[in-house]
Structure formats: structure tokens, C-alpha cells
Design a protein around this nucleic acid. Structure first.
Lengths: 207, 207, 207, 207
DNA sequence: TATGAATGAGAGTTCATTCAT
DNA sequence: TATGAATGAACTCTCATTCAT
């Protein structure tokens, strides 16, 4: 949870944006330095290396994510309401951290990054654990079906959302959406609603 | 639909594998040449440039995908059976072309590849069209619900599957899977079953 | 004085044009083959190498030049008339062989071409000899001044002409000339006249 | 008029010498780096690219040339003396900047260098203007002939000189000159004298 | 005789990083 | 602490040439 000074944050934000749009290997530290308006040597100087800066960036962002779950459990909600709240949380988080998810999504899939992904793994484990807890709760009270594979619920939610984000040009054409705003709106309304409907159909006995 | 000779295919397959695991920018033509056991100059010689080789690769693979849909419509199946067949087709296709999907997934998401993605877009449009047709058929016969967003069904299927593929290390740990074979098996059985169950829950009225 | 077949001549002419405009090192055998519409391997096959083709080209063109001098001496002309005829011959020859002179001009000045320039040197020696002969003739008959450096007359003629050719963009601007035709015309009239006037002033006593 | 540090000047001088003897395309940046005893990457680092370095070199040298003309007009000389002084200036300048003239001479004649030659063109225009001014002055005072093409005087001077420089091997043989020193001496004495005599014969009425 | 396929060498350029200050 | 200068390594691509047919 190291604290970064302003220049360091400039670098991280420039890197985040560039890594997301150009990929890690496709981004040179020169371009990062240019966007962040700092000296080229600063990156190695502050973070040690390009790779270590990526680690720092991921750590920085994922540590943000960690402490948002607990609130859901504090309120007095039905299991289904909790699931819906969790879906809302997912979507808003991914929307907010689009760039970071883009990076994670790709970098995790290449075998060469041997970096310390513990932090991110923890976030995912927490999510999984939260889901498991809520669903078991719903199953115990007889609200939720029991013949379901709990571990595959989060990938259904996340996967649908991420797929929709990453194939944006296709869906823009398919759905006749033209502006950034309209796309974000579609996600917030239609896609969110669809995902909730899907998970609900999977979990809850019909009427 | 150009035909390639053996060496050209060697190059394309080496590139496919490396691009998938290292990314386009992370892969040097030297490493491709090494894996394909050809001279470095061959890549430029055959394909013009690294970038054009990627285009050729994508074209080569996506043109493969195009002609597999029709069979489903020829058989005499219920709409639900057709949907399930379609899901099977998706999964086997993605499993078979893991590398290409990995590449497409990333390259499509970076803004810089302006290459001709028509071929791939057509495949996706065909898939979407197939789904639309089947689901409308099911709706007309009263089997399927009508309050669903058809366009978001394919991303649900694809997204779930791709997410599971790309976060493999996490799910391996979470599910205690250790071998490649076991992971593939899990996809073929549990994940396939989960996706079918999900889509069915979404489409069909509970009895 | 080897005879070349049609394809070989195509190659030589393509090479001549490209060498003149792009330089020897700036011209690839690929581009020559393209312009000449022959297979790339033909150049090495016919001429042995790129360098040897240049030699062949120079030999081919300079051997053309060799046999044009004698006529002047056959006619019954005054020494001054002979000088003027020689100047005309120079200018028409350089105009006709612009490309070759451009090439020679450059290639001769780089130290690295160790090629056999005998043929071209012979042409120059012949020219020099012709001049010497004519001027001595004029001096003996008292028509020409005797305090002149005969060896420096040819470079004065050639130099003026070549300089005008090679700084064409500058003189076009300076003289307000806009078309190829007008430039050629200027050479044929004004420049030729100027050179003759210059040489005459140098050689002949003002009456 | 940018100032260059020592290493940059090393590079420029190495490049000048190599470009002159090998041509631009015939010179690799590796060889420049070797001669200048700097790292290969320095050339791109300092000048951006090989081509830009050539531009920098030309600009550097031509800007030197610009400010040498004025002195002639300050002194109290007859028009003929001024012409002779101008010829001396030309010759010494070309002798001093042999390499640069060699480069300019060739690069200007290939169509592909679209670089900013303004600086050099200005030098030439200044020269032309100086000549025009002096000759008109001589014509007005009745010293110089009026039936002459002023624009063609500079190319006569320059052309003769350059031709003599570029065909050095031929003239060495023809004149029996064997050393660098002797050749330079020949230029300073015989050639200079010949050019002056030529221009004088062209301009001035005999005795 | 003629050629498409293939190649090693080398081109210019950019890279992440280090070093002296 | 901060940075401009500098660098070796690696990059993609093109070169003239050769070889098997």
C-alpha cells in the first residue's frame, strides 16, 4: 500500500491508459514518459523497470478494489437482492476500471508474466467466496436451486460483461449504437438487466 | 482462401502459437522463424511483413470457421436441441481454435490494428443470425420466453467460456485441477453443462 | 562489343534510367527487374552481378560514343569551324546520353568503383587528342592564340554543360523555364551559343 | 545555425567524408559510427535519422558559406578585379568544401531527396546576384561587352572547376600529376589562371 | 536456357536501461 | 533527488545472390 507522489501517479495513469490501448509490449517507456510529461529515466528510477512498473500499477489498482465487498453483507437484504447488488458492484467496478481490466485480461493470459498476482487473485477469491456464501444462504432457505455449479456463476457474469466490452465495435454495429455515452448506457441498463435476469433464471425457481 | 505450402503453414502455426502466448508485439519474427524452423527472411518473403502475416493468419483461420453452421439447420430438431447443438459447436470451435481466439480477443481490443476484420465479423454475424433465427422459431411455437434480449445470448455463452479459458490459473487453483486434460474435461462436461443450463433457464419456461 | 539480346537490352535500359535517377546504391535489382519486366534472377544470370551489369552498361554506352569523331576531320573546314562542330558534337552527345553521363559523373567520383573504365577513358583521350590537333592546327596558321592551356578547354566545355544539367532546378527557377522542352531548347540555343562564344573568345584574336 | 557538441561534429565530419567518397546510399550508419568512434544509436539519437543527418550536414556547411560575399563589395576595385576576386573565392571555397560539393552535386541531381535545399539555393542566388551586379557595373562603364549571357557565367566557372575535380584520375594521367599536393597546386595556379583568362576573354574587349 | 524459391548478411531504427552529474 | 546523455541489444525488413529444377 505504498503511497505514490504526484509524478509517480502521473506515470502510472499514463501507463494504464497506454497499456490498455496498445498492450504492454506495444507501449514504450518513451511514450509513457511523453504522456506523463516526465523524464524517460524516471520510470526506471522510480519503479526499477518497465515490468516492475506494471506490477506496481496492478497492485495499486487491485488494492483499490479490495475493500468494497463488506458493505453488502452489512445491510439487511434477501439473498437475491444481495446477488443483484453484487452484480451491480461488478459492473460498476469493471466500468470504472475498464483500462485495468483490459490489461489484466490480456497480461494474465500470456504465460510470460510471472509477476506477483497475489493481490488480484485475492480479489477474485474474495468475490468467489462472497458469491458462495450468498448462494449457500439462498439454498439453505430454499430460495435457490441446488443443482447449480456455484464456481461458474462469477465467470458467467464477468465473461458476459467483458466480452461485451471487448467486442464493442461488433456490438455497436449490431445494435446501432453510435456514441460512447449510448454504449455506456446500454451496459448500465440492458446488459445489467440481462445479466441479472440470467443469474436469476439460473438460481431461482420460477414464480 | 489462398492455399499455402507446407513451409508457409509451418510459419502460420508457429506464429499462431506464439502470438497467443506472447502477444503480437511480444513475439519477434526471429522466434517465429526459430519455431517454424525457417529462415528469418522467409516471413517477409512470404507474407510481406509481420503485420500482414497476422492478417493472413486471421483470414486463414476465420475462413475455416465460416462453413460449419448450416448442418444444424438441416436436421430435424426442436429449437432447444438446436440451441444446445449451437452451444456445443461454439465450445468445440473455441477449444479447437483456442490460440486464434486468444489472438483475436486481444488484437481486436487494441485500437491500432486497423486490419481487415471483415472475415471475422462475418462469422460473428452469421452466429448471431443463426441464434436469432432459432430463438424466434422457439418463441413462435411458444416454447421460449419472449422477454429476452436475443443479442445478449451469444455474449453470455462466449463470454463465460472465454473468461474460463483466460483465467485458467485462477480456476485451476479454485477447482483443484492439475492437468491439461482435466481442464479440458472440465470444460467439456461441467462448463458445457453449466452454459446449457444457463441458457435453458433463460429461454424456457420452467415446467 | 558483345551483342545483347532483347531482354538484356531491356535490363540495361531500365538500369540506366534508374541508376541515373536513384544512384547505383539507391537502385535495387528488384526495381530494375520490375521496370524491365524480367525475373530478378536474370540480372545475376546474364551479367554475373549488379556491379558487373553496371560495367556492361558503361561499356555498352561508351562504345557507342567512340566512333563519331572522324567525320569532322574528313570535311574541309577552318579550325574554328572544326572547334564549333566539336562543341556541337559534345552537346548533342551529352544530351542524348544524359543518363549515362549522370551515372559516369557520380560513379567516377566515388573511389570504390574499381571497374574497368578504360573504354570511357579512351573516349576522353580521343576527345582531348582531337582538340589538341585542331587547336595546334589553328595556332600554326596563326588563327588561334598561343598562350592557352589546351588541356583545360574540354573541361570548360563539358563542365559548363554538365553543371547546367545537374543544377537544373536552380536554373529553371532562375531563368523562368517551366517545361522539359523549353529547357532542352535553352541548351540547344543559348547555352550552345554561350559555350561557342566563350571558347572562341579564348582562342581567337579579336579582329 | 544550431550549435553542435563535439561528438555531433565528429559524426557530421565522418558522414561528410564518407558520403563524399561512397555516396549517401553507399554509406551505412555503422561505418559512420565507426569512423566517428561513437555508438551506432547516436546517429538516430542526435539527428533523428540518417536522412535528417544529411540535412543537418548540408545546413551546417551551407550556412558557413553564406557570409563571405560581402567583403568583395566593400573594397575599392575595378569590375574586372572584382570578378577575379569572386573567382578566387569560388575556387578556394570549393577546394575547402570539396566533400560537401561532391555530396551536393550528386544528391541534388537525384530526384528523391526532397529535403530542404533552401539554404543552398540561397547561396547560389546570392552568387548569381553578385555576379549580375558586378557585370552590369562593368557594362555600364563600358569595360565589359554587352552581348553576353550573364546567367551562364557562373556555371562556366563552377562547371570547369567541378569537372576538373571530379575527373581527377583522368587529368592526373593526362597531365602527369602524381601527388595530391601537385594536383591542388595545379588547380591554384593553372586552372585558376585558365578560368580567369576565359572569363576575361568573354567579358573584356581585347587590348 | 531460364526461373521461382530461398537465404545469410546487413540495413536503419527503436528499445529499456544505465551512468555521470 | 532527479535527469540528459549515452549505449548495447534487439527489432523488422530488404538486399544481392544462389540453388534446384
Amino acid at each position: 500500500m505504498t503511497e505514490y507522489n504526484e509524478k509517480q501517479l502521473d506515470i502510472l495513469m499514463a501507463a494504464e491508459s497506454l497499456f490498455a490501448s496498445e498492450g504492454f509490449d506495444g507501449t514504450s517507456i518513451r511514450s509513457i514518459a511523453k504522456v506523463a510529461k516526465v523524464n524517460i529515466a524516471m520510470i526506471s528510477y522510480y519503479f526499477g523497470s518497465k515490468e516492475k512498473m506494471l506490477e506496481a500499477l496492478i497492485l495499486h489498482r487491485t488494492s483499490d478494489m479490495k475493500m468494497q465487498l463488506d458493505n453488502i453483507f452489512k445491510e439487511d437484504l434477501t439473498p437475491l437482492q444481495k446477488v443483484e447488488r453484487l452484480i451491480d458492484l461488478y459492473i460498476s467496478r469493471i466500468n470504472k476500471n475498464k483500462c485495468m481490466y483490459q490489461i489484466l485480461h490480456f497480461e494474465l493470459s500470456t504465460k510470460k508474466r510471472l509477476m506477483d498476482m497475489k493481490s488480484y487473485a485475492e480479489v477474485k477469491q474474495q468475490n468467489m467466496a462472497a458469491f458462495r456464501k450468498i448462494i449457500r444462504e439462498g439454498q439453505e432457505t430454499g430460495l435457490f436451486k441446488t443443482n447449480i455449479n456455484i464456481e461458474l456463476i462469477p465467470p458467467t457474469i464477468m465473461g458476459t460483461l467483458v466480452h461485451f466490452q471487448m467486442n464493442r465495435p461488433f456490438f455497436e454495429a449490431e445494435l446501432g449504437i453510435k456514441t460512447d455515452e449510448a454504449y455506456e448506457n446500454y451496459i448500465k441498463k440492458e446488459l445489467t438487466s440481462h445479466i441479472k435476469q440470467t443469474i436469476k433464471a439460473l438460481l431461482v425457481h420460477e414464480n
